[in-house]
Design a protein around this nucleic acid. Structure first.
Length: 557
DNA sequence: ATCAGAATTG
């Protein structure tokens, strides 16, 4: 039996369920929202079964849904199984898992049918808490009694999606076994989620095997496989598949372009973007644009970046936070901090990402003081920094010699924002102190920090030694490195070699080069990209037609 | 009711 209190205030009907120990549909002290004639004109007076069902079917907003829920309780329909099901469905589609879960747990008389298990499992698979989705699935399997819910192809599709969000592939592999036992192997959706799951873990032999054995495939199947190869850096395999795909859409293109960017094949990324534009039916989506802007940023390809900016404005792509972030980053890395700032100023609602890209941009331009000012402005607007924001700020301090400020931020980041320094933050600190000439202190920090120093740290330290002409500390550091890990660290030896040569001690350079070849270091010769700006063809808003593209000079030194 | 994609530091 249900108890609810109804009372009228200022013309509104308020309904509040009481908390009693009988198996309530709803056991919560929440006050339901007021029901007004305006917000619910039809059902205000006498809602019956049919009108209540109609209200639930019409994709209500969360507050409308709660009103309807309150009415169901007052009409004593709350033990009605079909109402419970509809309510759960509505709450999951409104992404209110709390209410949905309460209803699900208190499902009256029997265990919920498969459909409701599926809805709950699917809802959790979309959240960060996808573990819960697997818990539910395990509970579903462990039930026994006369009527038990049986997993169907929907269940497996959602469970496998949750598996692809787990830290390891074991859950996914187990579920795959269960799929085979239950005979859902040949289902298109189950197959697609399996290909996607194996691709997410970059287990491409397995993904390919599932793909090969599927009786039918669609764009999702192909795109999932392509993006798996792209993520694994196997762009040869990816482009081969991409060429063979019977049908492509914007996500397929995005997978290819992002794959090239991830593998530092920026020119290839731009080439695919060009091909995509050539296909009149294809419209680059946000993911494509963000990836291509990143490619421009890495190449220093300002003109192409500008072209994409104009394209975004002209074609009315909604200027999202991601797009703004990518534009700011592109302009900053291409040396146009003024344009970056222009984009930043034009944003109506700034978030951590846009702030971070602006601050980092200022930092790499040596504008540490401005970066710091922006940082405090950001804090003033109540936006919490993340670890990358702090990296940007620390980087700005080290490039502008703001030692006290940098140290202060480093040593208070954990207490102020709950962000524990990672090895990258330590790298900034060592760099900061090293550049400032506090070499001993920097070395001590590298030695005593909670994690093993990596090559980036040693490089910062050794180049600081070089700048400040302190070869003996450099040697001391190298000794320390070789004691810790005698094999590897090729980069460190190269740096020591540079350190010596800058000091004119050539006999030692010789010794170091020998040592380097002995330890077979994975050192790659430095290289740089220089954009060959051809003014005739690079006007903003120009096209990417053949022959009009940039040429590149590749120089090695 | 169903499955695919992106960015921020050196």
């Amino acid at each position: 039996m249900l108890v609810v209190s109804c009372f009228k205030t200022k013309g509104f009907l308020r309904i509040k369920p009481f908390n009693i120990q009988t198996p309530l549909l709803f056991c919560s002290s929440t006050t339901f929202p007021a029901i007004s004639k305006e917000s619910n004109p039809v059902s205000f007076l006498q809602p019956n079964r049919t009108t209540l069902f109609r209200q639930l079917k019409q994709r209500p907003t969360l507050s409308q849904l709660k009103e309807t829920h309150a009415q169901i309780i007052t009409q004593a329909f709350s033990q009605d199984i079909s109402f419970v099901g509809s309510l759960i469905r509505s709450y999951t589609s409104s992404n209110d898992l709390g209410y949905a879960r309460v209803l699900f747990n208190r499902y009256p008389f029997t265990s919920p049918p498969t459909l409701l298990w599926n809805l709950m499992i699917q809802a959790y698979s979309k959240t960060l808490n996808s573990q819960e989705s697997l818990h539910l699935f395990r509970r579903m399997l462990s039930l026994d009694g006369p009527i038990v819910p049986v997993p169907d192809s929907y269940t497996f599709t959602f469970v496998i999606t949750s598996c692809s969000h787990q830290p390891s592939a074991v859950e996914g592999q187990n579920t795959h076994g269960r799929v085979i036992k239950s005979g859902f192997e040949s289902d298109l959706f189950v197959g697609n989620s399996l290909v996607n799951m194996y691709s997410a873990f970059m287990k491409m032999e397995d993904a390919q095997k599932v793909f090969n054995e599927m009786p039918q495939r669609d764009v999702f199947t192909w795109t999932s496989l392509v993006s798996g190869y792209a993520k694994s850096g196997e762009m040869g395999a990816a482009s081969e598949l991409f060429a063979r795909m019977p049908e492509r859409n914007d996500v397929s293109w995005a997978a290819m372009i992002a794959g090239f960017v991830g593998g530092a094949k920026y020119n290839e990324a731009l080439k695919y973007f060009h091909d995509m534009l050539f296909d009149a039916k294809m419209k680059p989506n946000e993911a494509v644009l963000v990836s291509v802007l990143s490619a421009c940023a890495h190449l220093g390809a300002l003109d192409q970046g500008k072209w994409i900016h104009v394209y975004i404005d002209k074609t009315g792509v909604p200027q999202s936070s991601n797009i703004s972030t990518a534009l700011i980053d592109m302009y900053a890395k291409c040396g146009r901090i003024d344009c970056a700032n222009q984009v930043f100023s034009g944003i109506s609602k700034r978030d951590v990402l846009t702030w971070t890209s602006m601050i980092s941009g200022l930092s790499i331009h040596g504008l540490g003081k401005v970066a710091l000012r922006m940082f405090s402005q950001m804090l003033g607007e109540g936006i919490r920094p993340n670890n990358i924001t702090l990296l940007g700020v620390l980087n700005g301090c080290s490039h502008s010699g703001l030692i006290d400020e940098g140290c202060k931020i480093f040593y208070s980041m954990e207490s102020l924002w709950g962000i524990a320094p990672t090895i990258e933050h330590y790298g900034c600190l060592v760099d900061l102190l090293g550049r400032a000439g506090q070499l001993e202190r920097a070395f001590k920090i590298a030695r005593d920090m909670p994690m093993n120093p990596d090559i980036v740290i040693w490089r910062a330290l050794l180049s600081a030694c070089r700048i400040h002409g302190n070869a003996s500390l450099g040697e001391q550091i190298i000794d320390y490195i070789s004691k810790m890990d005698p094999i590897g660290h090729g980069g460190g030896h190269v740096l020591l070699s540079n350190l010596y040569s800058s000091l004119g001690q050539w006999e030692r350079v010789d010794r170091m080069r020998k040592l380097m070849s002995e330890i077979r270091s994975d050192y790659n010769p430095g290289c740089s990209w220089i954009e060959n700006v051809d003014r005739d063809t690079s006007e903003v808003g120009g096209s990417f037609e053949k022959g009009k593209c940039r040429r590149w000079i590749y120089s090695q030194h």
